[in-house]
């Protein structure tokens, strides 16, 4: 496989992502909008957080990763499958491995842009960048693997339209149950237990703890690791390259 091919593929995938307006809404506008809006209405002042932005930045970073790795990657891949692009690429020298490397690089590139913007906006509204930013990035990578696995599982098994609806619907559910815009303890107890088994809350709670020096939630980390292992394995097992 040629490195030139990987670079060209990553470039093309990135151009395609940036050309899709709805993709920019879900990956950039919604996370930044939630950060600014919920910081201003100050609905989330919870024990242990001096300022709502301390709660919100870790949640919005997690939300951004979910938007890129699950929604953006999943919907694009689903339509590439519908239009026979994945099939066509299968008979070029760009192997499936090469395609996956390029898609990974595209998602990571988009996430770097998201993280920079969230941090810049967060600082502008009063967030102090804490020391835990490095382990936080590691956790966001783990979340990327989990959400990419979920996105690719849906993209490779559902029809393109069903995948579009499922990815957006799941994004909304995980936003509500993910402890991202408001604390999980605002939810009914039964719903809290359910939410804690999902990857969104596992990611936002672990990222929040390393960014705020709260006690590290090993249970949530175990949930996140389980999703990061299980979802890609299921995707690899059930992904169909042709619709």
């Amino acid at each position: 496989m040629k490195t030139g091919a990987l670079a060209a593929q990553t470039r093309a995938e990135t151009i395609l992502q940036l050309r899709r307006g709805e993709n920019l809404v879900v990956t950039l506008a919604i996370p930044l909008g939630i950060l600014v809006f919920f910081a201003k209405i100050d609905s989330v002042t919870t024990a242990g957080f001096a300022h709502p932005v301390d709660f919100l930045v870790p949640g919005v970073l997690s939300l951004a990763v979910m938007a890129s790795a699950m929604v953006s990657l999943g919907i694009a891949t689903g339509f590439e499958r519908r239009y026979g692009v994945l099939k066509r690429l299968g008979s070029t020298p760009l192997s499936r491995g090469g395609l996956l490397i390029s898609k990974t690089a595209t998602v990571l590139g988009l996430e770097i842009l998201q993280i920079l913007l969230v941090v810049v906006v967060g600082v502008a509204i009063g967030w102090d960048v804490p020391a835990g930013i490095v382990p936080a990035v590691g956790l966001l990578l783990l979340g990327t693997i989990a959400f990419a696995g979920i996105g690719m599982l849906m993209a490779g098994t559902l029809r393109a339209e069903a995948n579009l609806a499922a990815a957006n619907g799941l994004f909304l559910v995980l936003l509500f149950l993910g402890g991202m815009a408001y604390p999980l303890d605002k939810l009914p107890t039964a719903l809290q237990d359910f939410a804690k088994a999902l990857p969104a809350a596992a990611l936002s709670e672990t990222v929040r703890s390393v960014l705020s020096a709260h006690a590290f939630p090993t249970g949530e980390l175990a949930v996140l690791i389980a999703w990061a292992v299980g979802a890609p394995l299921l995707a690899a097992r059930y992904f169909r390259w042709e619709e």
Binding site: K2, G4, A5, A7, A8, Q9, A12, I15, L16, R19, R20, F79, E80, Y83, G84, V85, K87, R88, T92, P93, L94
Partner: peptide, 22 residues
Amino acid sequence: LQEGGLYPGLKPLELLRLFAAY
């Protein structure tokens, strides 16, 4: 292929440049 196989969001020259890189 009998149908499909082209990125709908790319322009013809962009698509051929991408395929040329393979």
